[in-house]
Amino acid sequence: MIILQVEGVGKQFGGLQALSNVTVDLPQGEILGLIGPNGAGKTTLFNVINGVYEPSDGRIIFNGKDITGLKTYDVARLGLARTHQIVRPLNELTVRENVIVGACFGREDHGLAAAGAIADEVIEFIGLSVRTDQLAGSLNIGQKKRLEMARALAARPYLLLLDEVLAGLNPSEIAGMVEIVRKIRDRGITIIMIEHVMHAVMNVSDRMFVLDYGQQIAIGTPEEVANDPKVIEAYLGDPELAERLMSDAD
């Protein structure tokens, strides 16, 4: 079953074409890695999918429903959750309250009591139990990233958009997070993840999708993508990255 169809989506900001004619179908249960050089339009694509921006062209179909131009909160309630590259904790609320917000206003629209139970379960799953009554603003960056994940998961989404959840983490934290991403997929949740930590994203993704200057230049298995001349060319601006890209594919 196809859970998300992005059909010919474009986005313009003034004279800048941030995305043009992006088309991708996402089957349920897949992990799609979204990569590309900085400024390629990856986060913009997320913003267009979840309704932060309305696309200039094209349509977004989610679970068979056209969600183009819907407000972010309506998209969220249909079962599409996301995390942010720059974390956005609700600082003056506790970790548990943050996650309860996710559960309360997510797809299942729970009351406070039921949301509390879900929050406890998700916090346990994500490994923040010892922090549960701490104010979100007092967490360190790794914990804040987990909190973002927990909030998104508590919404019980069908589709999860992860924006650089591995950035800024140390190697053991990365391994833990990759494990969590796998477990989330095992629960039947479809995932698109933007990532710069190449070995991790190649490792965990079923397919990869590459953007460059707002254009899609490749889509396929990690091996196919890593050996695609256009992808290598796109990354030539950053030779080190290209090298890592190729070595990680082996």
């Binding site: 979840n50 932060v52 407000k71 972010t72 909160y73 969220a76 309630r77 959750a81 996301r82 942010h84 956005r88 904790p89 609700l90 600082n91 003056e92 609320l93 917000v101 996710g102 309360c104 206003f105 997510g106 797809r107 909030r151 919404a155």
Partner: peptide, 11 residues
């Protein structure tokens, strides 16, 4: 705390 983040969570 963060209106845009709240909306993205469905508020």
């Amino acid at each position: 705390e963060d209106e845009d983040a709240a909306e993205i969570m469905g508020v």
